[in-house]
Design a protein around this nucleic acid. Structure first.
Lengths: 161, 161
DNA sequence: TATTGTTATACTCTATAACTATA
DNA sequence: TATAGTTATAGAGTATAACAATA
């Protein structure tokens, strides 16, 4: 757990003068959950992207493949709704994953408007590797905020998944 | 506290079939802090934007004005570093705030490359109103996840501010 | 009429690189 | 040489609207 917890001194000066990086006060921002959550989310995504850089998979791509892997045959609408992604955006995400032969769209026979989504055999193998790397990333999170805090965070935010 | 906590059943079927929205399992995603944090952050920003819609202020604009208000005379580099914003992006954010007469850039006399940032008189008044609305937004967060949980969250993430 | 997938547009945000004027 | 501010570009992500095929 190596969070930089240097104290932020409020200066409260009215005139222009030199500020050291650490003496710039955040004022009302310290009381806003959204500010801290946003900074944390940026850190966590950057670590995820770095940890999975070798396989070139980003958080959203990982979430799409994971849900398709666990629920084969889903339609694009179903995946989009479940993950809170715009269906227009999912089209491009799937184009990219399909061109890499990780996912395939299969024409549904019951509803010819929709596609049933599946991982390819190659996609299954790849996803297993992605999951191992994602677990490594999750250990980084644990090191950063602590085991207990990470578990508490997951409980607090369970309703948003 | 009105989080939708309907249980997500794992289906585990291998064949394509109908899925109800709530029975689509997230599989490995449930163990990833980043997934929950991202969904929460989207919710919280949307509520912030909605709550401050009348004054047309977004979270990043609010954070910039708050830091300038509390530390008058800061340079653009100092604000960018403190808030983790790219200095190239801050240029456009300040262009927008300056055209609305909320913020002003004043040429520094000691270092003619840099600008000292200040709120205008109008900006001070406006920021006071923004802070009241932001506090209202913060109460929405409290209602959503609970008072204790919000406070615990702030403590857990204090190192990222 | 409504829905699925698609295409297109606009705006926010992140990440770079390069330019200018200073230091 | 290095830094502050600026301009530009590219890609992710969000938010819409509209269209064709199908229900």
């Amino acid at each position: 757990m190596d969070i930089a917890t240097s104290p932020r001194k409020r200066t409260g000066n009215g005139a222009a003068r030199h500020h050291d990086a650490d003496e710039i006060g955040l004022d009302a921002l310290v009381g806003h959950a959204g500010y801290a959550v946003r900074r944390f989310q940026i850190w966590i995504f950057q670590d995820f992207i770095k940890t999975l850089a070798d396989v070139d998979i980003r958080p959203t791509q990982y979430s799409v493949m994971t849900v398709i892997g666990a629920n084969p045959g889903l339609s694009q609408m179903a995946v989009a709704k479940r993950l809170g992604i715009e269906r227009a955006r999912l089209v491009h995400l799937l184009d990219s994953l399909e061109s890499r032969r990780l996912v395939k769209r299969i024409k549904s026979k019951t509803d010819r408007r929709s596609h049933a989504l599946h991982l390819t055999a190659q996609g299954e193998t790849a996803l297993a590797k992605f999951k191992r790397l994602a677990a490594e990333h999750e250990r980084h999170v644990e090191e950063k905020i602590g085991k207990e805090n990470r578990e508490h965070l997951l409980r607090i935010l369970a309703g948003f998944t």
